[in-house]
Amino acid sequence: MNAIDNSKMQKDDIALGELMSILSGAKDSPLIFYYDGRPVKPGYHVTEVKAGQFSALDCGANPEAWNEIFIQLWDIEEDDRSHMPSGKFHAIIRKVTEHVKLDDAARLTFEVSDGVRPMQLYCAAMPTLRAGTVHVELSPRPASCKPRDRWLAEQASAAACCAPASAGKCCG
Rank of each mutant, 00 (worst) to 15 (best):
M1T: 02
N2L: 09
A3W: 10
N6M: 01
S7Q: 08
K11V: 05
K11L: 15
K11Q: 05
D12T: 14
A15R: 12
G17Q: 09
G17Y: 05
G17R: 12
E18H: 11
E18Q: 14
L19M: 04
L19K: 03
M20P: 00
S21Q: 09
I22Y: 09
L23M: 06
G25H: 07
G25V: 01
S29A: 13
S29T: 14
Y34C: 01
Y34N: 04
Y35R: 08
Y35S: 11
D36F: 07
R38T: 08
P39N: 06
P39R: 04
V40F: 11
V40N: 10
K41S: 02
K41I: 09
G43H: 02
G43Q: 01
Y44Q: 07
Y44D: 04
H45G: 10
H45C: 14
T47C: 10
E48Y: 08
E48W: 13
K50D: 06
A51W: 02
A51E: 11
G52N: 15
F54V: 15
S55G: 10
A56M: 05
L57V: 11
C59I: 15
G60C: 01
A61W: 12
P63Q: 06
P63A: 03
A65H: 05
E68N: 06
I69Q: 01
F70P: 02
Q72N: 04
Q72K: 14
L73C: 09
L73V: 15
W74L: 08
D75Y: 10
E77F: 05
E78H: 15
E78P: 02
D80K: 05
R81G: 00
S82M: 10
H83Q: 02
P85F: 00
S86F: 04
H90I: 09
I92D: 00
I93H: 02
R94V: 12
E98C: 02
L102I: 03
D103W: 00
D104T: 07
A106I: 09
A106N: 11
A106W: 02
A106M: 02
R107W: 07
R107C: 06
R107F: 08
R107Y: 15
L108R: 03
T109G: 06
T109N: 11
F110Q: 10
F110T: 06
E111G: 14
E111F: 15
V112S: 15
D114P: 06
G115I: 01
G115V: 06
V116G: 00
P118F: 04
P118M: 09
P118W: 08
L121Y: 09
M126H: 15
P127N: 04
L129P: 00
L129E: 04
R130P: 01
R130T: 03
A131Q: 13
V134C: 03
V136N: 00
V136F: 01
E137R: 01
L138R: 01
P140S: 12
R141T: 13
P142A: 03
A143Y: 15
S144V: 12
S144H: 10
C145E: 00
K146V: 14
K146R: 06
P147T: 07
R148P: 12
D149W: 09
D149G: 12
D149V: 14
R150D: 14
W151P: 05
L152H: 13
E154Q: 11
E154R: 10
E154V: 07
S157Q: 13
A158P: 07
A160W: 10
C161I: 13
C161L: 11
C161P: 12
P164L: 07
S166Q: 15
A167W: 05
G168F: 05
G168P: 02
G168H: 05
K169S: 06
C171R: 07
